[in-house]
Amino acid sequence: MEELPRLLLGGLKIGAVYSLAALGIVVIHKATRTVNFAHGALIMLGAYFGFFLLRLFGLPYALVYLLAPVAVGGLAAGTEWLFLRRLRRSDAFSVVISTIFIGLAATELIRVAYRSDLLSVPQVWNGPPFFIGDFVLTRETLWIIVGALFMAGTGASLFAVARFGRPMRAMAASARGAQLCGYSVNVVYAQAWFLGGTLAGFAGLFLAPVMGITPELADIMIVPAFVAAILGGFDSIKGALLGGVVLGLIETLSAAYLSSASKSALTFLILLAILLWRPRGLFPESKIRDV
């Protein structure tokens, strides 16, 4: 039982990244009614963009954390503006399907360029770890937990409180109403994809030193991101934040005390259970909306 605090910290670390990932999905879904299956690919791109800026351009980490996520956000907004917008005219169903193939295209493009080599980036903090009693907290872990949760919190308030999120909130409440109030669907959708993409970029950037950088990141991250979002109620901002942390803890603990394979079986069982018995998630938004 001595290792419990260490496990909890590990769960919190991966959970914080899941929160970022889930939040991006929820933001995009709320504002544009599109389930983004390319989100895993966006996260992967965040890690690669970080690698490009660090290794190819030799930028310091501070700038990388500023530029890489924004670049992913810009790419996501560009995809919406140039491609999804056209498709949306015919059928909302095909927009969702197309995100799957957009994700595939991005992953394959990276694979062609870099094969499946495991690239790595240095840790952000290299100083000595902190000792609390007889247990060790590395600077890296602290940075990821605090940094990722802080960014997720910032993203959530940008959407839910700040002026920047108002058009998206309006679109989420009623697309027609928002249009009547003078918000352009095209602009607001692009904004939502930008915000969601930026959050995905951060998730990838926080993940990169821990997991290493491969095209596989896209597939590895898509399932926990969705499950975390569903855990939180899928349309709930607060739910996505908490859902990520809860999922991270459950996964880490079950991998440690049961087996690593049980982790994924458990993920599916959680998903089934939530869908069957608590479809509005563990942390639903207070307002009841039509399903």
């Binding site: 299956f37 079986a265 599916f268 998903l271 089934l272 069957l276």
Partner: peptide
């Protein structure tokens, strides 16, 4: 399809996605 008794659309799509990964890991 168990969740199909309550859900359509994207929730089912996500259930199929997770099932895919679980079977392969299994």
């Amino acid at each position: 399809a168990l969740p199909a008794s309550r859900f359509r659309g994207h929730y089912l799509a996500m259930a199929t996605l997770v099932f895919q990964f679980v079977i392969i890991i299994g």
